[in-house]
Deep mutational scan, measured.
Amino acid sequence: YFQGQLNAMAHQIQEMFPQVPYHLVLQDLQLTRSVEITTDNILEGRI
């Protein structure tokens, strides 16, 4: 994955969860590489 793709995914998640800091979303995406998994992590309070 290149950074631009991760940034696009992070923006997509931020639209759904504007209360979660962008850098935390991006940090999780770098591990998961998945909008779905990061979204689940937010919903389950891991982020």
Results as ranks from 00 to 15, higher is better:
41 N>V: 05
26 L>A: 04
43 L>R: 12
19 Q>F: 14
5 Q>D: 14
47 I>H: 02
30 Q>S: 08
18 P>G: 04
44 E>N: 14
1 Y>M: 13
1 Y>S: 14
36 E>H: 09
37 I>D: 08
2 F>S: 13
14 Q>A: 12
17 F>D: 02
7 N>I: 15
23 H>M: 08
36 E>N: 08
20 V>G: 02
3 Q>N: 10
22 Y>L: 15
34 S>R: 03
45 G>Y: 03
25 V>Y: 04
27 Q>W: 12
44 E>R: 15
42 I>W: 04
19 Q>I: 05
12 Q>I: 12
32 T>F: 02
5 Q>E: 15
47 I>L: 13
29 L>C: 04
25 V>N: 00
36 E>G: 07
21 P>L: 06
25 V>L: 09
12 Q>S: 09
2 F>C: 14
10 A>M: 07
24 L>A: 10
3 Q>A: 09
18 P>I: 03
44 E>K: 14
28 D>P: 09
1 Y>T: 13
4 G>W: 10
35 V>M: 10
3 Q>T: 08
37 I>E: 09
22 Y>H: 14
8 A>M: 12
30 Q>H: 11
24 L>V: 12
43 L>S: 06
35 V>T: 06
22 Y>A: 13
46 R>V: 06
33 R>I: 08
36 E>K: 13
46 R>M: 06
36 E>R: 12
4 G>P: 09
24 L>K: 08
40 D>P: 01
7 N>H: 15
5 Q>I: 13
46 R>G: 03
15 E>P: 02
15 E>M: 13
31 L>S: 09
44 E>V: 08
42 I>T: 01
28 D>F: 06
4 G>H: 14
33 R>G: 15
47 I>C: 05
40 D>L: 14
43 L>I: 09
18 P>Y: 03
21 P>W: 05
17 F>A: 01
31 L>A: 10
46 R>I: 06
33 R>A: 08
14 Q>W: 14
9 M>G: 03
35 V>Q: 06
22 Y>I: 15
18 P>M: 02
21 P>E: 12
19 Q>V: 05
43 L>K: 11
2 F>Y: 10
38 T>N: 01
2 F>K: 06
44 E>S: 15
30 Q>F: 12
35 V>L: 10
25 V>S: 00
2 F>W: 15
5 Q>H: 11
14 Q>Y: 12
18 P>C: 06
42 I>E: 00
21 P>T: 05
14 Q>D: 02
13 I>C: 02
9 M>N: 04
39 T>N: 04
24 L>T: 09
16 M>R: 13
25 V>C: 08
47 I>N: 02
8 A>Q: 11
21 P>C: 12
16 M>K: 11
43 L>M: 10
22 Y>P: 14
31 L>Q: 10
13 I>L: 10
20 V>T: 05
19 Q>T: 11
37 I>G: 07
47 I>D: 01
47 I>W: 06
25 V>D: 02
1 Y>E: 15
25 V>I: 15
34 S>L: 04
44 E>C: 11
32 T>M: 02
34 S>W: 05
17 F>R: 01
9 M>P: 01
1 Y>D: 15
14 Q>E: 05
15 E>K: 14
3 Q>K: 09
24 L>G: 04
38 T>V: 02
2 F>E: 15
16 M>P: 00
47 I>S: 02
16 M>Q: 10
19 Q>E: 14
14 Q>T: 11
23 H>A: 09
23 H>G: 06
31 L>P: 00
31 L>R: 11
30 Q>D: 06
25 V>W: 00
26 L>H: 04
9 M>A: 06
10 A>K: 02
29 L>F: 01
3 Q>G: 07
38 T>G: 00
15 E>R: 14
11 H>T: 10
38 T>D: 01
39 T>V: 15
5 Q>G: 09
39 T>H: 05
35 V>A: 08
34 S>H: 03
23 H>S: 08
47 I>M: 07
11 H>S: 10
18 P>L: 04
41 N>K: 06
9 M>F: 08
32 T>S: 06
8 A>K: 10
7 N>C: 15
1 Y>W: 10
25 V>Q: 00
21 P>A: 08
17 F>E: 00
42 I>R: 01
26 L>F: 09
18 P>R: 04
38 T>I: 01
30 Q>Y: 14
16 M>H: 07
44 E>D: 08
2 F>G: 13
8 A>D: 11
14 Q>G: 08
45 G>R: 05
32 T>V: 02
28 D>S: 04
40 D>Y: 10
43 L>P: 00
46 R>E: 02
21 P>G: 04
34 S>Q: 03
15 E>I: 13
29 L>P: 00
21 P>N: 08
42 I>D: 01
41 N>F: 04
7 N>D: 11
40 D>A: 14
32 T>R: 00
11 H>G: 07
2 F>P: 15
46 R>A: 04
41 N>D: 01
19 Q>Y: 15
22 Y>D: 08
19 Q>D: 14
39 T>Y: 07
38 T>R: 00
22 Y>F: 13
15 E>C: 15
16 M>A: 09
7 N>S: 11
13 I>F: 02
47 I>K: 01
